[in-house]
Design a protein around this nucleic acid. Structure first.
Lengths: 187, 187
DNA sequence: CCGCTCATTTGACATAAATCAAAAAAGAAA
DNA sequence: TTTCTTTTTTGATTTATGTCAAATGAGCGG
C-alpha cells in the first residue's frame, strides 16, 4: 500500500486523514496470469492500482480481439467507460503476468470524492492524465505506415516490447502479427 | 452564457456562488470560419465553451493533416494535453464555421478548482466524459474495413456528415477522401 | 533430454485502399 | 448569369498489408 501512496504523492498532496481513509477502503487482490480482471457485459465496480505485474485491455471488435492498452506497475486500471457511466462495458482486462493489485469500490470512491476535497482533486488529475495518455496513443496510431507506428512505439515505450507477446503488440499497433514480425526482421 | 450554465446543469449542480464566480471570469470570443483557435507549438491557455458553430482538431502527422476530432454546439473545447501538462501542444483547432465561444483562462480555472469544490467536481466529471468519448472513438477506429468505420459513424454521429466537408471526415475515419467517396457511392 | 504447447517467423498469394490524375459538381463572388 | 474556387467523384494503376498455411524456435513439465 505504501507503493500506492508514494505513487499518489507524485501527483498531488493528500492529507494524512485522506490517506488513512483511502487505505481503509482498499482491498488487496492477487490474481494469476491469464485471468480476467474485468469482463465485457458487466458494470465495472472497481478502480485498481497495479502494484506488480502487467495486463492488457482488449475489445472484441468485428470478431477479433483488439488490444488497445497495456498497464504496468504503478498504474491505475479500470474500465473507465463502464465505471463512470454505470453501464455494462465492452472492455476486457486480462493479466499478462501474475499480479498484485489494490481495489477500491465505486461507492467508496464516490463517498471519498464527496467528503475529501483533496481526493476529488486527485481523481480529476488522474483523469486528466489518462486522457492525455489515450490521446497520445490515438495520435500515434494515425501514422500512415505500419513501420512508423512500430518505430514510434520503440521510441516511446520500448518496455512494452520486452514484456508483452508480439501478437498483442501487433494488435495494439493496428497490424497483424505477421506484419509486425516482418517489420522487425527488416530493422 | 445561459446556454453554458444550462449545459453544466445537466452534469452537476453548481451553487449560485460558483456559477457567479465562473461567469465573472468567462470572456466572450467570436471568430470567423477558417481561423485557428489553438495552434501547435504553443501552450494552450484556455478552455472554451462552444456556444455556436463547429470546429475540428487536427495534428500534422507524417506531413499531412490528421483530423481527429469535431466539436459542435454545447461542447467544451481545448487542447487538453497542452492545457494540463503546461507544455507546447501538437494540436491545432480550426473553425469550420463562424463561432461564438466563451473562454476561461488556465489560472482562473485552477483558482476556481481550489476555492470551489463543486467546480472541482465539475472538472472531474467533464474529464471523465471526455475520456469516454475519446475511447469510443478510439475503439471504432479499430474496425478493420473502411466501410465499417463509415457505417459506424453514420450510426453514431450522422450530424458530422451534414456539417463537415468530406475531406475532413475521411481523415477523421482514417481513409483518403477518394475512398470515402467511393464507399458513399456504393451505399 | 524429450515431447508438448505456445510464440514467432517465413512464404505465396489476394485484396483493400492509397496514389496520381483529371473530370464533374457545387458554392461563392462578381 | 458568368466566372472562379472549392469540394466531390471517377478512373487507372500501384502497393502495403492482410490472409492462409506451414516451418521454426522457445519455454516448460515430466
Amino acid at each position: 500500500m505504501q507503493t500506492l501512496f508514494s505513487h499518489i504523492r507524485k501527483y498531488c498532496q493528500l492529507s494524512d486523514e485522506s490517506l488513512h481513509r483511502l487505505g481503509s477502503v482498499l482491498k488487496p487482490v492477487e490474481l494469476e496470469k491469464g485471468s480476467l480482471l474485468i469482463t465485457e457485459g458487466k458494470v465495472c465496480q472497481h478502480v485498481y492500482f497495479l502494484e506488480r505485474g502487467c495486463l492488457r485491455g482488449f475489445y472484441n471488435v468485428d470478431g477479433r480481439e483488439i488490444t488497445y492498452w497495456f498497464a504496468f506497475e504503478n498504474n491505475f486500471v479500470t474500465s473507465l467507460l463502464s465505471f463512470v457511466t454505470r453501464l455494462p462495458g465492452m472492455e476486457n482486462i486480462q493479466l499478462l503476468e501474475d499480479c498484485k493489485l489494490w481495489a477500491i469500490a465505486y461507492d467508496d470512491l464516490q463517498t471519498l470524492y464527496q467528503t475529501h476535497t483533496d481526493i476529488n482533486t486527485l481523481g480529476r488529475i488522474m483523469n486528466e492524465r489518462y486522457y492525455v495518455m489515450l490521446e497520445e496513443r490515438f495520435v500515434s496510431n494515425h501514422f500512415r505506415e505500419a513501420r512508423d507506428r512500430y518505430e514510434n512505439l520503440l521510441a516511446r515505450a520500448p518496455h512494452i516490447l520486452q514484456r508483452v507477446p508480439l501478437g498483442h503488440v501487433a494488435s495494439y499497433l493496428g497490424m497483424t502479427q505477421e506484419t509486425l514480425s516482418r517489420i522487425r526482421a527488416k530493422s
